[in-house]
Design a protein around this nucleic acid. Structure first.
Lengths: 205, 205
DNA sequence: TAAAATATCCTGTTTTTAAGGGATAGTAAT
DNA sequence: ATTACTATCCCTTAAAAACAGGATATTTTA
């Protein structure tokens, strides 16, 4: 069975690299590539590959959003996330949005082939490193914040005091203090400084 | 004149991509590749290429440090920085450490060839996007910190109080407070929270 | 060498946070 | 209807940070 593979990545070098890695594979039919999300979607209006290798960072929209969109419009197309970043949040979001796998750009030809053939069969494949990253966390679990807490967090990080945040949100400063208290607890942070640092690291700011 | 090109990048797909892009160039002699800094340095003990394409993110040490080291030991070897990131700080540091150019991974074959031939002649090449990034800043001027201030900043961001920082650095807590005061002034920050946020944005933490 | 930058230390006052406690009302889900 | 969560509000005390002055010794640099 021949698998039709399409690539979405804005880096020519990566596209070339993958083409080069796959060109001698008999079971792979090189279907083409796109360098951004919109041309990918346009392509899919006319032709459907079996598997799309999709970068997470695209110029016009994130691969994470594109993944969701493609899966909704074309459920027969399986998607493998492709990224330099071995980040828990990215992998998680990609899989949540219907991806069949996640491969790092330092993957070997073998890993890539495994991922493609698994995806073509509708199965799931995660590269070793990616699956480790996905499962190890819970120590670095990102706290779930309420809408209000996020608002307060942003303003605090911008240097506003409780009183100033309160004025901005039309609530009492003691309420802001409570939110701050809850934020510190959720992040297990010692004080505002480490709270802001952690929030930035989790990319919540 | 034939240019001997060597690549240091921990992503197979990028190595393959560049090889594929360059394989039909008559003026280019593919010299090989390394996937980390130490094997690159080991290779250079025996053979010297004309140009090294060097990723900024390597597993064992940063391309920025490796660049400096290679230039010191082997001044005849010219280096072109290679990265996904179009970040002012990276480009600046790479050039400061003696790189002859900086090319993004979404560069075309033409751009890559221009960069290589410029570097081979000892000239400098920056891809359009990279040079824009390098020159645009000054609105977002990054404060210059002293060694001590950086130490204090890191510890503050980790949530230590003045007293704790003082104990760690064997200085008085009032001194720490003075450093903090100076940091706030340099960053034009209202308080520690915004200081930490700005420092993270400037990638000083 | 003189000036500038850096690192160190001090004494105050005022404002803000941290940490502990507790309370009420609305909403969403089971 | 009860539980769980969210958002709101309040109190107290102690610790910490912000702010405003100033001072001295050591490096760096021009």
């Amino acid at each position: 069975m021949i698998t039709k593979v399409f690539i979405v990545d804005d880096h020519y070098m990566v596209i070339e690299g993958i083409r080069s890695l796959l060109q001698h594979e008999k079971d792979i039919d090189w279907f083409g590539h796109a360098t951004n999300a919109s041309s990918c979607l346009a392509f899919l209006e006319h032709q459907l590959p079996d598997v799309i290798l999709m970068d997470i960072n695209l110029p016009d929209k994130s691969g994470i959003d594109l993944c969701k969109e493609v899966r909704e419009r074309h459920p027969s197309v399986f998607i493998i996330g492709l990224s330099t970043f071995n980040q828990q949040s990215f992998i998680q979001k990609m899989m949540d949005n219907g991806a069949s796998g996640y491969v790092l750009k330092n993957a070997t030809r073998e890993e890539l082939m495994e991922a493609i053939s698994a995806a073509a069969k509708g199965k799931t494949y995660l590269s070793d490193e990616a699956s480790k990253t996905l499962h190890k966390t819970s120590a670095t679990d990102i706290p779930v914040l309420t809408r209000r807490e996020k608002e307060v967090l942003l303003l605090i990080a911008d240097g506003l005091t409780n009183v100033e945040v309160a004025e901005k949100l039309f609530i009492s400063s003691t309420t802001v203090d409570t939110h701050r208290k809850n934020l510190l607890a959720k992040f297990d942070a010692r004080n505002t400084a480490s709270l802001v640092k952690m929030a930035m690291q989790f990319e919540l700011i």
